[in-house]
Structures are given as C-alpha cells and as structure tokens.
Computed example of a mutant assay.
Amino acid sequence: MSDQAGPIQEMLAANVKRGRTLQGLSISELSRRSGIGKATLSQLESGNCNPTIETIFSLSRALEIPVSELLDTRPPGDLTVVRAADVEPLVGEGVDLRSLRHIRSAHTDLDVYDQQFRAGHRQLSQGHTGTEHTVVQSGRLEVTVDGYEVELGPGDYVGFDASLPHSYLAPDGPVRSVLLLLQDRAGRQPRSAPHSAAL
C-alpha cells in the first residue's frame, strides 16, 4: 500500500466509484460480483490501494465496462505520441501492461496496450469484456484460450473472445507484444478473426 496515491490509483478510485454509483451498486454487491474484498474495494475507491491487472479486469467484468473507462483516456487529436517511459505500468503476475491509447468510434471502443511478459510467470484471466488481439514483437509466447493452447513467435497474431478464460506464458524469456482490446459499445462482441485462423 502506498502512502500517496499515484495517477493510476487516483483514476481508478474516481472511475470505480462513478461506475458503481451509476449502476446503483453497493460496495458489498460489487464485492460479490468481482470477487474482490469489501475492504480492498473501499481502499481502491479512496485511492489507497495499488491495483493489479487482475483487479482491474475483475472490476471491468463486474461493472461490464471497458478497462479504458476505469483508467485515464486521452483526448483525441491529429497526432498522439506516447512515450513508454511516461506510462505507469499495471503489474500482473506475469506481465507489465502499459495503456497507450483509447480510441472511441460510434459503435466500438479500441484500447491499445504495450505488453511486456516476464519469463516463467503465467498471466491468468477468468475472462472480461471485449475481444483481444495480440501481436508478438519479440520472444516466444504461449497463449491458452478456454483450454486450447497455441505458441506464437515474432510477428504472429492471435485473436479471441476475451470473455473466455485465457492465459499467457513466456516460457523461455521476456516477451514484448501489442494488445488491441475491442469492446462493442452496444454490448455485443466485435467480430474478430475466424477462430481457426486466430488460433
């Protein structure tokens, strides 16, 4: 726990409380839906808890809103430059995730992330809203989606329904990749690549 809230803690505190209030949920009910303890949620809403990737995706799933609505969104412009060193990473069991850009269209939200996987640590997700598209830039990455496993190398792509249980593992060494997370604003899953092609 940090003595002073950082940018991610402050953004998450405000956005979780806003999302919970708009849906008329008590902290107890959000705790039940997300599997996160009430004390932890209270600390999150006061900006006194360091969120993990797992926590943020659990909140996204429980509140049924994109991850980007829990984190800072940058205003659109003609030119956007994001320096990796300037973005505070979300730290998970096996990955550091940096949010680079949120793009909103009439029907779809698109979030762009830089992912850096640590060797030998599996990053698990029970599922969340949206469709994931991942392109490996360097290293070897094992991806398991609903029990089906594929191995990706540099330049390889995988796409899948993110509501399915999934995990990532860098078995040999660090892996860097780009994650595109699509969320249909009407509540439907955007179409990804055909399952046979993606996996």
Rank of each mutant, 00 (worst) to 15 (best):
T80A: 14
T55Q: 10
S167E: 08
V67L: 14
R122M: 09
S125E: 03
E149M: 15
L182A: 14
D3Y: 10
S60Q: 01
A193I: 10
E45A: 08
D146H: 10
N48E: 12
E93Y: 07
R118Y: 03
L180A: 14
T134H: 06
F57V: 10
R176V: 02
T131D: 03
V82P: 01
N15M: 02
Y113A: 05
V67N: 03
L71G: 07
R104C: 11
V87M: 06
V158E: 02
H128W: 05
H121Q: 13
G155Y: 01
R191S: 13
L90N: 02
T131L: 15
E54M: 11
L41W: 04
S60P: 06
L199H: 15
A85T: 09
D156H: 05
E29H: 12
D109T: 12
R83Y: 10
R185Q: 15
G35I: 05
R122C: 01
V67R: 00
V175E: 02
P76H: 08
Y148G: 04
P51W: 02
T52F: 07
Q183S: 15
G47C: 09
D161E: 10
S196G: 15
Y148C: 11
P89D: 02
L12C: 07
Q189S: 14
L59Q: 07
R61L: 04
L164I: 06
H102T: 15
V143E: 05
H107T: 13
L199V: 12
H195F: 14
L100W: 03
I56A: 12
L71D: 09
R32M: 07
S28D: 13
D96L: 14
A13L: 06
P154Q: 15
G35N: 09
V145P: 00
F160M: 00
S138K: 10
L59H: 01
Q183K: 10
D146M: 01
D109P: 04
H195D: 12
S167T: 09
A170F: 04
S28K: 15
L110V: 12
R176Q: 13
R20Q: 11
V95K: 02
M11A: 15
S58V: 00
V112R: 09
D86Y: 08
M1F: 11
H102S: 14
S192K: 09
A170Q: 00
S138A: 14
D3V: 08
P76R: 08
L12R: 04
G6S: 10
P194V: 07
L71F: 03
S34M: 03
G19F: 04
T144A: 06
R118S: 11
Q23V: 02
V150S: 11
